[in-house]
């Protein structure tokens, strides 16, 4: 079934055994159909884009403020949620963050293709970013590397080492549901940096967006289905995925730093009205479309109850 000579591939086996299969974003289903085009007698691969449970993930205070069109309360609630997160930052690292400062979070599984270190790829530029006094930023990293992947553990420790000398950069441990919740609620910018076509969907940005964290992401996974640059999020322009990875990383880093310094940071400090609008749009464009109620419905309608 998944048989290719003496090697058995679980995905091929499952594609053949199922009446119907799915990829977890529009882009991923395309990639998967192409990747498995050589497999005979396999099921059709449709797409059902991943989602997250709004009732569990979205902060009720910020949802209510959104519902009442009360922009001041959206802002105030976000500042409160930042302060709650910053208590945890201080508890773990001894660093006291300020709720008035733009806060960038990179938090998810520490896998190489997700590029946890993309932000500091050009160390000189990174230090300029974090040492800017006029328009300051705070940065938080968190996430578990696979416990037997020394490469990923080294990236974690390297970022942690860099953060030792920076009072506005924190690396947190214990990335589980509680910390993930705190980070999504307390982030201004939710940074997502997978190499294009490597991330099937990614869902952390959905639950972050439900809490008014603004996504800044490469054009991969679920992001193309959501993004309106400058309206509900920010997008790092797509880089040719066939380039050598060093080149991709270098180009993506330059684009990322450029968006931060020319668009995001000035906007946050100079146009709070527009910033709140982007926050609200990011919530409005996720609370239904990327709520797992939509997804759980689609699995019934398009897979379980589908005749084949």
């Amino acid at each position: 079934m998944g048989n290719k000579g003496d090697i058995f591939n679980l995905t091929i086996g499952a594609l053949k055994a199922a009446k119907i299969s799915n990829g977890v974003s529009l882009l991923h289903a395309k990639v998967a159909n192409k990747m498995w085009s050589h497999v005979q007698n396999r099921s059709e691969i449709i797409h059902i884009t991943n989602a997250q449970n709004r009732r569990y993930w979205a902060d009720k205070g910020v949802l209510r403020a959104l519902d009442e069109h009360e922009d001041y309360e959206v802002e105030a609630r976000k500042k409160h949620l930042k302060r709650v997160l910053f208590d945890e930052v201080a508890n773990q690292t001894g660093k006291m963050f300020d709720p008035n400062i733009l806060t960038i979070v990179w938090a998810r599984r520490f896998a190489e293709y997700k590029r946890p270190g993309l932000l500091k790829y050009d160390l000189k530029k990174f230090l300029e970013l974090v040492e800017n006094q006029e328009m300051p930023v705070q940065i938080i990293w968190a996430g578990k590397p696979y416990p037997f992947d020394n490469g990923a553990i080294n990236i974690f420790n390297e970022i942690n080492y860099i953060s030792n000398n920076l009072k506005n950069v924190a690396v947190l441990v214990g990335y589980e549901l509680s910390l993930s919740m705190m980070l999504k609620k307390g982030a201004d910018i939710w940074l997502n940096t997978p190499r294009i076509t490597k991330e099937a969907s990614g869902t952390s940005g959905m639950s972050a967006a439900m809490n008014g964290a603004v996504n800044l992401s490469t054009l991969d996974g679920w992001h193309p289905e959501f993004e309106k640059h400058g309206i509900n999020c920010f997008t790092i322009t797509a880089t040719d995925p066939t380039l050598p990875i060093e080149e991709q990383d270098s180009i993506d880093n330059a684009n990322l730093m450029n968006i931060l310094s020319t668009e995001i940071i000035p906007l946050y400090y100079e146009n709070s009205k527009k910033w709140v609008n982007i926050m609200k749009n990011s919530m409005l464009d996720t609370i239904n479309a990327f709520d797992s109620d939509r997804m759980a419905h689609e699995y019934y309608a398009n897979m379980y109850d589908k005749d084949s």
């Binding site: 048989n3 000579g5 003496d6 090697i7 058995f8 591939n9 679980l10 995905t11 091929i12 499952a14 594609l15 055994a17 199922a18 009446k19 119907i20 299969s21 799915n22 990829g23 977890v24 991923h28 990639v31 998967a32 990747m35 099921s43 691969i45 059902i48 293709y113 076509t197 490597k198 991330e199 099937a200 969907s201 699995y299 897979m303 379980y304 084949s308």
Partner: peptide
């Protein structure tokens, strides 16, 4: 009849990320 009971969600967009083992070992 078996296929009518099974649906599958794949999550891995990279060929190398898809789990493989020796058929004999399995």
């Amino acid at each position: 009849a078996l296929q009518q009971k099974i649906v599958f969600t794949t999550h891995t967009p990279e060929a190398a990320g898809n789990e493989e083992h020796s058929t004999a070992l399995l």
